[in-house]
Design a protein around this nucleic acid. Sequence first.
DNA 1: ACATAATAGCTGCCTAGGCAGATATTGTTT
DNA 2: AAACAATATCTGCCTAGGCAGCTATTATGT
Lengths: 163, 163
Amino acid sequence: MTKNYYKVDTFQSRKALGYLIRRTANLIVPHAEALFADQEITFSQWVALVSLRDGLTNTCADIARHLGHDSGATTRLIDQLEARGLVVRTRSQEDRRVVKLSLTSEGRAVAKSLTPRILEFWNDVLNDFSSSEVTTLIELLTRLLGAIETELANEPQKARSAR
Amino acid sequence: MTKNYYKVDTFQSRKALGYLIRRTANLIVPHAEALFADQEITFSQWVALVSLRDGLTNTCADIARHLGHDSGATTRLIDQLEARGLVVRTRSQEDRRVVKLSLTSEGRAVAKSLTPRILEFWNDVLNDFSSSEVTTLIELLTRLLGAIETELANEPQKARSAR
DNA sequence: ACATAATAGCTGCCTAGGCAGATATTGTTT
DNA sequence: AAACAATATCTGCCTAGGCAGCTATTATGT
């Protein structure tokens, strides 16, 4: 148990997890978007497609949680995928508030065809990491994400995303 | 050497580093901003203040790189810190293109007074991690960040941030 | 010396996404 | 069953930050 890993007087931003994570995300996301610049969909849209295909999500609300976006942004993202014929909206019969999302065959094709771009980037980046290092990193990040989620849930001083 | 950690057919978004990092950042940053909601500065502004105080940065361009923002956004961020009397701009004499930034005593006070909020959050989140796990995570993330930076530099298909 | 390129900073413009409010539907209390 | 709360989606509005273009200054090549 690390009661106090960080202390005010020894704190350095270069070793701050928040700094490292934010900076990494700030480099990755625009680059990923750039990899998609010549495509008909954006990187975020691709992430949504893949999550639908893999059954990780199947409604707008799911996608909002998955991407960490708000529901308004998600509605608009789905609007575009629908307009391009990659996704179909169907009002659910069991619960008429929800709109079920499903991929069209073209959506499935687009999701698949773009996957190699992202994987190639990551495999390049991870070239100097051993396989066990990558596994460790993924495991620690997964736990960290879980810890943050519960911490934010416990401390409901402010309404959180996916409202 | 992990030549190919990720493969197209075994790829799952839940184990994707990009997903984990982006999602974590998407949870952390708004929460950090919320912690500052009652303050006169935002979280990003605080990060800039601290980086100036610690000598990690001392110009706009430095801060842009540190935050992963573009230079326009940084100009406006500094504008606000200057308007609030927390930072002073001084044209450099050695190189008259650059504007040196320095904290006022009030800026120093504000930077210091807000640090505990962030550290407390992180110490709560890290409660279930051993000290060595945190160290490992920081080390792996630092290397990952470095690897991404060099990867992006090698592949200059598109101009990168801090233009 | 002169042309060219690179760098620091600033400004206008635009978009992605956050926020709050509205509707429709379902669940829970009393 | 009436009231209230919660959830899913959608819409308008607004801001932070990305992008491109501009000037001033310095560095580099010829």
